[in-house]
Amino acid sequence: MSDTFFSGAPHWAWLIILYFFVGGIAGGACFLAAVVDWFGGPEDRPVVRTGYSVAAWGAILSGALLTIDLGRPLRFWHMLFQSANVPALMFKGWSPISFGAWAILVFGLFAVLSALGGMAEEGRLHNPALRAVGGAVRGGLAKVVGGVAGLLGVFIAGYTGILLSVTNRPIWADSPWLGALFVASGASTGAAALILLAPGRGATEQSLARLSAFDTKALVVELLVLVLFVASLGSVNRVWIGFWGLVLLVGVVGLGIVAPLRLHLQRRPLASAAKLVLLGGFLLRVATILASEGIERYRVAAGM
């Protein structure tokens, strides 16, 4: 039996699952927006602007979800500053949760600046202060700010998986592939969110087809990493015999990866595939987190 079965469950449930999902979308969408920002053409601007907006709202929602989930929400700032020694910073580079707290803050800052830049570009900012900030983020500066946000986005999408691996819990600590899996899922769900939202801001058919082509590749990578993840679990795989295994197989692999891949190959409407990708991304977090959460140490020890 893996030694991880003797640890206790941290009660990371729906708020954390939602955060992992939203953070993945925000990070993935921001990364894609930055790539298109740097290497795309003028006709791709709606995708870029949508991506930065998804990142900004995602970062804000992520911060809110994480704060509400704390046992003492008003002490959220203890993650950032030494509570007895303000303004000394609280930072542990080897602790993903500490690193992540800072990353979300900085990612949120850069994503909001990029989103404001995009909104100013569209002439949608009416508040003078916001218009001034948004107006300043343009040209070369906008590319640098967006590029930093994009790189941080990749981190935000993946560090949550690393965070789970840097524990002593079953499944999470039994495989080194969760971070890689969440990166791939962040890319696929980020692209899916852009496919669904970018048309509202004037994205062209060509831009959407390009995103869809990327999403196909991201789903293939995700499936490969998922296979590696399951293979690396070895004997721990017995935890999947049950409801969460069914969710992983039918919900994540079937509905979330294989079905949208088939739709892409058949060149069916992009929105249907994108919705399935989002569903699969959500169920991936649900299955990996709740399958481990359900394992209670004292029951394992008692052979129940």
């Binding site: 290497f39 993903p96 993946g158 998986g161 691996s165 840097v166 890689a180 390009r210």
Partner: peptide, 25 residues
């Protein structure tokens, strides 16, 4: 698990980054 998990995540990010860039190129 930190070093191994981080390395695999970076590798995954690199593959996806190349795929995104290649598509655009």
């Amino acid at each position: 698990n930190l070093a191994k998990s981080s390395s695999f995540s970076l590798a995954s990010a690199a593959v996806l980054g190349v795929l995104a860039l290649v598509g655009l190129r």
